[in-house]
Design a protein around this nucleic acid. Structure first.
Ligand SMILES: [Mn+2]
Ligand SMILES: [Mn+2]
Ligand SMILES: [Mn+2]
Ligand SMILES: [Mn+2]
Lengths: 218, 218
DNA sequence: ATAATATTTTAGACAAAACTAAAAATTTGT
DNA sequence: ACAAATTTTTAGTTTTGTCTAAAATATTAT
């Protein structure tokens, strides 16, 4: 697979979360920052290669083969992110761009040794699970903080939005993965929450809460 | 610079060892495993970009700017090689192909942190010097073992040929960088040498000797 | 149901990087 | 010096991945 093909495969994978439903041409174009016509061209090529199922005007879905490829790229992306943060002192808002390049380096030995070197991590710096060599990975049992009821006791385990602005906001407010969170209050009017995190009370907007994953520990 | 441009720049740099003399189109084509006509096209483009000086039929030379770029690519290549060998258990004959890809990853922070992480190594696994961030590096005072006189006492510090077959041969014969070497005999007829290495006497062909660098310690 | 709107595809063009075949310039041999 | 051989460049294609503009299809609203 070429670099470009790999990026398309990854985009289709991420957009097709739930799997079954086909992904629209426009959605791919938006995510990849290209034009829909370019997506159509590429999708035809990927279809010829057996990577996706495609019927015109009906959207596109990864085949089993395509899913394998997607998972291997995601695995590489996330392992590199762990490496950058844990070994090279990158902060979690700086890794994405570099991992975007590193994920395309071709060498099975490289990625297996990297995995071993890092102690077979299960999640990346944003709390996203790292697929194993054979493409398996557990869908973590996490829910959005914005969906948690008052009194919920949990641990912060991931972010939905991993854009630098959001991650920097969390850093600034000393919210990190692994932190225990208790939901104290929920404002009906704007959905904002009062939480206790690291023994400190703070109020966060619904926009923040809907981008933070927690694992409930009841 | 694109990946392809970077590979051309690196090739021109390596071919132009002594600096001054221009590099021929055919030489670049051979090294890059492409056709001379492709080289001509690329060299024109690099000339437009100010990376090389080019006059048709007269060959090509890197500009000062081009040399900077070349050194930064060589730096990345060699630092990654060190990483692969020292941290990921690659052997020295496996690293080149992967470093060939990693050298193109764009991130100044990445390479500076990698350098730090590795303890600012001075040479790569083949004994080749690693340029510093600002493009300086010492031309090691090494000479070919085949040029050494009888009685010479030295340390093996590098290889001229770093192809897997040669490196594997050295491994098999327990010859490694850092090993002390004493030249015992030199056969007039075929140029072969009898050397003492690691307290063991062995005979090596002139072809081997002419691809091993030693630093003399007299 | 039909018109308006939005989405998707097709057709045609372009830039990057490669190739082949032929022409031009240089180098070599006598 | 001049012919032969070699090297290098030019001209014309090809492939990959992109784009714009226009046509086709699907969706939504009246
Ligand atoms: Mn990518
Ligand atoms: Mn991530
Ligand atoms: Mn390369
Ligand atoms: Mn090397």
């Amino acid at each position: 697979m070429t670099l470009s093909e790999e990026d398309y495969i990854k985009a289709i994978y991420h957009l097709g979360k739930g799997e079954q439903t086909p992904v629209s041409t426009n959605a791919v174009a938006e995510k990849m920052d290209t034009k829909p016509s370019s997506v159509t061209d590429m999708v035809k090529k990927l279809s010829d290669k057996g990577v996706v199922n495609y019927r015109r005007y009906k959207g596109v879905r990864l085949t089993e083969y395509g899913r394998k490829i997607a998972l291997s790229i995601v695995r590489k992306h996330r392992l590199w992110e762990v490496f950058l943060v844990e070994r090279l002192h990158f902060s979690w808002d700086e890794v994405h761009e570099v991992a975007e390049q590193l994920e395309h380096v071709k060498s099975e030995k490289l990625i297996d040794e990297l995995d071993k070197h890092l102690g077979f991590p299960k999640v990346d710096p944003h709390g996203d699970p790292i697929p194993s060599k054979d493409g398996e990975f557990k869908k973590a049992v996490k829910k959005l903080l914005s969906d948690a009821l008052i009194g919920t006791n949990g641990v912060c385990v991931g972010v939905k939005d991993s854009s630098p602005p959001f991650l920097k906001f969390l850093d600034k407010n000393k919210i990190a993965l692994g932190d225990p969170i208790l939901v104290l209050e929920k404002e009906e009017f704007d959905g904002s929450l009062t939480i206790k995190i690291n023994n400190k009370e703070m109020r966060i907007s619904e926009q923040i809460a809907s981008n933070l994953f927690v694992e409930i520990i009841d």
